[in-house]
Simulated assay, not measured.
Amino acid sequence: MAGSVGLQRVIEPPGVLPQAAWRLDASPEIGPDEVRIRVRRLNLDAASFRQLAEKHGGDGAKVRAEVLDIVATRGKMHNPVTGSGGMLIGVVEEVGPESPLGVEPGDRVATLVSLTLTPLRITDDLRDWDGLSEQVPADGTAILFGRSIVGVLPGDLPAELALAVYDVCGAPALVDRVARQYRDPTVLVLGGAGKSGSLSLAAAKRAGARTTAIVVSEAERDALAGAGVADEIAIADARNPVEVAEKAQADITVVCVDVPGCEHGAILATKPGGTVIFFSMATSFPAAALGAEGLAADVTMLVGNGYVPGHAAFAVDLLRTTPAVRALFEKRIAGD
């Protein structure tokens, strides 16, 4: 068990799992059940990138320097403020003889586990990254454990596009699972124009739901309208509980906004007996739990943990079969 979950990589504090550790051993030599990946690109999660960009006033050089410092200090990309990381793509270099992951040297892969638990070593000083985008060209090594999750990149999608989809693939899969538990559900997505938001809307539509999206601007509304995945689109500040609740009431509310303070609006907008799914690393779970109690809200609250069996294939299929959502992703990548 110890090797399969990466305990041997924990430096401090001893006895915790890699995600909870302050520092990991990111040395490239692998154990019997480990896999080493040559890193090609990181994808910082939206909450982490936003925090870093705001902290440094949009100065890309300072953002790059802090990411390098975090990785060098912690042996992983684990933002100490947001507690989040992201994921990566690369090429398999070496596979331990006891690895159960089913990959081979030369496979182009995406890690489907968080960078907060992935031993990571950067060897190029991120010289090709300007610090202004979530996607980070990089060279280095990463280690996967026996209980890690990894996906071979689909041959028909550019690597940058596949990385963007895999980064949020847990969201649409869980939305699909929950929506199918209701009869004729209504689904509200806060942050519907983003990556996880647009795929969650597409999943809800596929599951037969009537969908509403909350977005922050007219530009986001206009971009999302062409995708055809939202029956209604409203502009509101997701941090304003009353404003959100006045815009929509839904059986299922999905939070895909990468800023803090959206918990109470999601709760108020959810019908009694409904479900709130939090898919933002900016979520305060004490605020959610205590807020629901204080509002006497009879809602089930789920933490989107990023993993549902088959989530990667499900998300890629949504992208392939919903061209307008693919166009949203491609436009975002081009903007980055």
Rank of each mutant, 00 (worst) to 15 (best):
E34P: 00
D222L: 13
F329R: 01
D222M: 11
V10A: 06
F49T: 09
D59Y: 05
G310M: 03
A209Q: 06
G265T: 07
V276N: 07
L120C: 05
L163H: 02
V10M: 07
R41V: 09
R9F: 08
A266T: 11
A292K: 02
A213N: 12
V229Y: 02
V215S: 02
Y182K: 13
A327C: 01
L112E: 12
R121P: 02
G208S: 04
D25A: 09
F314Y: 15
H56L: 09
W129E: 12
P105C: 11
E34H: 12
V95R: 13
D59F: 03
E160Q: 08
P154R: 00
Y166D: 04
E330V: 11
V136M: 12
A202C: 04
I333R: 02
D298Y: 06
R180W: 02
G304H: 04
G197M: 07
V276Q: 06
K62V: 04
N43Y: 10
F145A: 09
H56A: 03
R121L: 15
A21S: 14
T322L: 01
V255T: 12
G85P: 10
R36Y: 00
V113Y: 00
G131H: 12
I122L: 15
L188M: 11
R127T: 13
C169T: 11
K62E: 15
L268D: 12
G58R: 15
D231I: 10
L161V: 14
L153Y: 00
E94D: 14
P272Y: 04
P32V: 12
V244M: 05
G131V: 12
R180T: 13
K331P: 03
A324C: 08
V95N: 07
G291R: 08
A162I: 02
R332G: 04
T322P: 10
R50V: 07
E98W: 02
M77Q: 08
A47N: 06
P119E: 08
A219V: 15
G15M: 11
P97M: 12
L318N: 09
A207P: 09
V109S: 11
L7S: 11
A209W: 03
D237G: 03
G226P: 15
R50M: 03
E293H: 15
P185F: 11
A21N: 07
R147S: 13
G3V: 00
E160S: 13
G273R: 02
L199F: 07
C256T: 14
V276G: 10
L157T: 01
A227Q: 06
D45F: 03
V308Q: 14
A282V: 09
P309N: 07
A248S: 15
D125V: 00
D45P: 12
F329I: 10
A236H: 06
P119Q: 07
G86W: 04
T211N: 04
D130M: 08
E54W: 06
R108D: 14
R41Q: 15
K205M: 06
A230I: 08
P100W: 07
P260I: 05
I37N: 09
P323W: 06
A292S: 15
V71E: 03
E160M: 00
R9M: 08
L68V: 03
L224I: 03
T116F: 00
V187S: 09
P185D: 12
E54H: 06
I11V: 15
L290N: 14
